[in-house]
Structures are given as structure tokens and as C-alpha cells.
Design a protein around this nucleic acid. Structure first.
Length: 314
DNA sequence: AAGACGAAAGTGGTTGA
DNA sequence: TCAACAACTTTCGTCTT
């Protein structure tokens, strides 16, 4: 117990800092094996193999294996999973009874810990928010890296006092939306709204607000981002997926996609690809997973097929 | 009967005066 | 703040397989 606290302090002593702005708000991106600064976006470290102390982990496997700090740190628990709990049993680490004169002290320590752990409004807010975040993320099947990123964004919003006057759930939904975009696994505002039971407009409003206040820049969604998810929902083969992407790339080069809704364009490309590959899905099936109407798919696919001179015979 | 088609009218969001 | 506008949806009758 005591060693664990000392250990934690030691780790905090050696916190990694961003070379550029000195910020300690660094985010570990396990998928890309990078450590990214949250304030300025600089990639602090990437793909390092055997350099540095072992608590710096650059992929999930390493982070689970590293031994000095126990459980991996995560932004998804309000105290980042780094807390030490004082056990309720009156035994020491070797299992011996603790003498009664020390019990009173132990009791006071426990009490304090309970108070400190969820002490102020900020912590309480985070606790509620992160619970909600995980709930929504599960509903939407979002990978862990996206959840972590959303949690980081939420924390920053709390730091800057951006929550006041807005619902926690709304801000959480917006954070998830941003994180999805950042990781190119976009969900539409519609889908986020559905999973979070928050009005779409509300999420959109908070989303724009957060982007402005936190100075986040996102590249616009491309129809390409939706292809993998739609294809897998439709149980289409890798071949069809590649073909759809190919069609989309050509369509984008011909400016056929600008100004169009990305989901509609994506759906159309998949429709064409599925027909060409002999793994046809009906317009209705595709319209369901893509969240657009058959009419839109028709309009888009006619345009694309004509301009790319693709014969789509059904 | 299911799927595709396209016309026409309606809706919500963006833009520019 | 309001009107114009383009994208998209809804609805529906018709054609094709």
C-alpha cells in the first residue's frame, strides 16, 4: 500500500512534456504508436522501440505488460485509474492483523480518501460524464481509442469551464462526435443523437462551440470514411469494399462529390460496386445502413455511373 | 411480389444581402 | 433577420424482373 503511493509519486515526477509547448497533456495513440500533444498536436514520440523508461508504452501490448505502475492509465476513469485504494480489512500487506492503535489512523485515512476521491464538483462531473460516455460509446460500438480521445476532449472542456450552462450528456455526445471524426471512424450526428438520446441540433451546436473554444481543427469527412463500416454492415467482401473506394476516388477527382452528403455518395459507390462484383445489395438495404433514402442513392449513382462511364446493368 | 425508377412537393440548413 | 437556394426526403404511380 505504502509502496504503491510512493511509486505513483515517482511516476508523476517524470511526466513527459511536449517539446513544443511544454504541455503535459499528452495523449497516447496506441493504434498509430504515437504520443501526441493535446495542446499543439505535435507528435512527441513515435514508434520508439527500446528507448526510455519502461512506463512509457507505445502500444497496447506494452502498456499491459509494463509492470511499474500496475494497471494501465486510462482517461476513461475519472482519476485515470491511478488511484490507490485503502483496503477495508484491518490487515497489512502480509495479512497480519494491524494493532489497534493504528486502526484509528487507518480509519481516518479511509475516510479522507473517500472525501478526496470524489471531492469537488469537477470530479463529480467527470464521474458522471465518463459513465455516460462509456454507455453511449458501447451503444455505438466505438473502439477504445475513440473513447479515450473523447474523454480527453471532455477533460479539456471541463478545465476550461465550457460545460457550464450545457448538459453533461450533450457535451459528452459532442466529444464523441469529435473523437469519431478525428479517428476517421465517423458516425453521423444522427447516429450519435440516437445513441445519446440528445437532440441532433443540440449536439451540433455544442460540437461547433467546442471546436471553436478548444481550437480544434478537423478535416471534413470524406465519403471514403464511411465505406468500411457500411460494407461490413452489409456483409460485403473486401473486394467490393476496394472497388467502392476505387469508384469513390475517381468520382472525387471529377468533383462529383463536393456539396453532396458524404453518406449518400458513399452509399451510391457501394451500390455500384456491389452490382459490378455480383454481390448485389438492394438500394433499400444500403439505404438502411447508410441512413439515406433510396432516392438519394439513385440520384447519386446515376450521376457517378454516367460521368465515370460505368455500365450498371442490374 | 419485389425492386427500381423518377416526378413532384415538402423539409431543414446554409448563405448572402 | 429574411429570402433564396441546393441537397435531401417523402410520397406515390409506373415499369421491370
Amino acid at each position: 500500500m505504502v509502496e504503491k503511493i510512493a511509486e505513483k509519486a515517482a511516476v508523476e515526477d517524470e511526466v513527459l512534456r511536449c517539446r513544443e509547448c511544454g504541455s503535459t497533456e499528452l495523449y497516447r495513440d496506441y493504434e498509430r504508436a504515437e504520443v501526441v500533444c493535446n495542446r499543439c498536436g505535435l507528435v512527441v514520440d513515435e514508434g520508439l522501440v527500446d528507448e526510455g523508461p519502461e512506463w512509457r508504452a507505445f502500444n497496447t501490448e506494452q502498456s499491459e505488460k509494463r509492470s511499474r505502475t500496475g494497471a494501465p492509465m486510462t482517461y476513461l476513469i475519472h482519476d485515470m485509474g491511478l488511484s490507490t485504494t485503502i483496503d477495508w480489512r484491518n490487515k497489512d500487506s502480509a495479512g497480519r492483523e494491524i494493532p489497534s492503535k493504528q486502526r484509528a489512523q487507518l480509519y481516518r485515512m479511509r475516510k479522507w480518501q473517500q472525501r478526496i476521491r470524489v471531492s469537488n464538483a469537477k470530479e463529480r462531473n467527470l464521474t458522471i460524464a465518463l459513465t455516460e460516455l462509456n454507455k453511449i460509446a458501447s451503444k455505438l460500438d466505438l473502439p477504445k481509442n475513440v473513447r479515450e480521445a473523447a474523454a480527453v476532449i471532455y477533460r479539456k472542456a471541463v478545465e476550461k469551464g465550457l460545460i457550464r450552462g450545457r448538459s453533461i450528456d450533450g457535451v459528452v455526445a459532442a466529444c464523441l462526435y469529435i473523437a469519431c471524426r478525428r479517428y476517421s471512424v465517423p458516425r453521423t450526428l444522427e447516429e450519435i443523437a440516437e445513441g445519446s438520446m440528445i437532440d441532433r441540433k443540440e449536439i451540433g451546436r455544442i460540437y461547433r462551440y467546442l471546436l471553436r473554444e478548444l481550437g480544434i481543427n478537423l478535416s471534413p469527412t470524406t465519403p471514403l470514411d464511411y465505406i468500411p463500416r457500411f460494407c461490413s454492415s452489409l456483409k460485403l467482401s473486401r473486394k467490393v469494399q476496394m472497388k467502392a473506394m476505387d469508384i469513390l476516388n475517381k468520382a472525387m477527382n471529377l468533383q462529383l462529390t463536393s456539396g453532396r452528403g458524404p453518406t449518400g455518395v458513399s452509399a451510391a459507390a457501394i451500390y455500384i460496386a456491389s452490382v459490378l462484383a455480383g454481390e448485389r445489395r438492394t438500394q433499400q438495404e444500403i439505404s438502411e445502413v447508410a441512413g439515406v433514402t433510396e432516392v438519394t442513392i439513385r440520384n447519386r449513382y446515376k450521376e457517378i455511373a454516367e460521368k465515370l462511364e460505368i455500365e450498371v446493368t442490374i
